[in-house]
Amino acid sequence: MNARSRAQALYHRTAARTCHDVLAGYSTSFGLGTRVLPPAQRRHIEAVYALVRIADEVVDTRGGDDAAAALDELEAQVARALHAGWSTNLVVHAFARTARQVGIEPAEIDPFFASMRADLTVTVHDEESYRRYIYGSAEVVGLMCLAVFLNADRRPGDPIRRADPATVEGAQALGAAFQKVNFLRDLAADTDELGRRYFPGVGEQGPDDQQYAAILAEIEADVARARQALPALPARPRAAVAVTLGFYDRLLTQLAALPPEQVRARRVRVSTPRKLLVLGRTLADEVRGGTR
């Protein structure tokens, strides 16, 4: 390896470490789930997460009059990096390398940025805009992760592996379930601080009992579809997804035990000891399932 190749490798590793740090800083749940993955898959999932997180921070944390321009620039950086295979933005650089490796395309990337852009202008969603937002902000992220699981070890020149329709539907349902649980957890912050109401028909005071029951049923249906697709995944990704799904199952159980006014008042969390318990039980179940 010559000096230039060594420098490029160092840059790639530095970009990957940056994405690892983003995930570690923002999410213990996904961080624990990714530990089950082989190193290459884990690195690619961290790159996907980091890009999604940065875009979310532009519209939620930065905000302001220049947020749209910042989001446009981030999207343009991604487009350039997908073409060139390089970016001065370390997170974008890592994401572009992942996308080129596993086959993430504008069909997934464009709807994501469209949903992020909607957060700058749309404050109250109707049924159509809600479905469109869920697809772009969450379902396509599930599809990106699925592409990683199937293609992280793909060699240059090999065709992209594509999942069957049922597995694709399961990946989309998984992303949708996670997003909707987060909407419930963040009801107060979304409404009071960001001025957004995602669930159609739900007012500023949060869902009534009937609306709350319908939202929980919708999430449970998403989770069921996601679980049906798990057996089609390779063993390590299946275990990683099962672990993360176990965390969100716990959140959903806690949310279902509360009246909607309490959900509106405080953010529900799963403690670290509980997460570790879920992690251990889920992995034990996966081992037992693999030996049957």
Rank of each mutant, 00 (worst) to 15 (best):
L32Q: 09
A76V: 07
Q179E: 08
E75A: 07
R236A: 14
A3I: 11
L10E: 13
F199N: 11
L252N: 02
P259G: 11
Q211S: 11
I54A: 06
A213Q: 13
E204G: 15
L71W: 00
N2A: 14
T14A: 11
Y135S: 08
R225T: 15
L255P: 11
T167P: 10
A99L: 01
T244S: 02
R274V: 15
R225V: 11
A50F: 02
P111H: 05
D72V: 00
A152S: 09
L276E: 12
V52D: 01
F178K: 05
A217M: 05
T291D: 05
M144S: 08
D192V: 14
V168Q: 15
R225Y: 09
Y212E: 00
A232G: 13
R250W: 10
S271Q: 13
A81D: 11
L71N: 03
V22C: 04
P237Q: 03
V223F: 14
A84M: 08
R161M: 06
S5G: 14
A235H: 10
E105Y: 00
E139V: 00
A226D: 08
A67S: 03
R162F: 01
R236K: 12
Y49N: 02
V52Y: 05
R100G: 09
G203W: 15
R53Y: 08
R117S: 02
F178E: 08
R13A: 15
E218F: 06
V287E: 13
R132D: 13
P38A: 13
A94G: 11
V78F: 02
Q262S: 06
R62A: 12
D222R: 12
A213H: 08
D249K: 01
A171Q: 04
S115Y: 03
L143M: 05
R155H: 10
R238F: 05
S27F: 08
I219R: 01
I160M: 06
A235E: 10
A7C: 09
R185D: 11
Y133K: 04
R288C: 12
N151R: 03
A256L: 03
E193C: 13
V181M: 11
W86P: 03
D209C: 04
P106L: 07
S29K: 00
D21E: 12
F149R: 00
A114S: 07
P259K: 07
G103Y: 12
M116E: 03
T253E: 15
D72W: 01
D158T: 03
I45K: 00
G33I: 10
L82Y: 01
V268R: 00
A171F: 05
V59E: 07
G103W: 14
Q101D: 13
R6M: 13
R236L: 11
T88I: 10
E105T: 15
A235D: 09
R161K: 08
Y26P: 09
A50C: 07
Y198I: 01
G170R: 09
I109L: 14
F112V: 04
I215H: 02
R267Q: 10
G289D: 12
R264D: 00
R154S: 02
D164E: 10
Q8L: 13
L184P: 00
L51D: 04
E261G: 02
E105G: 06
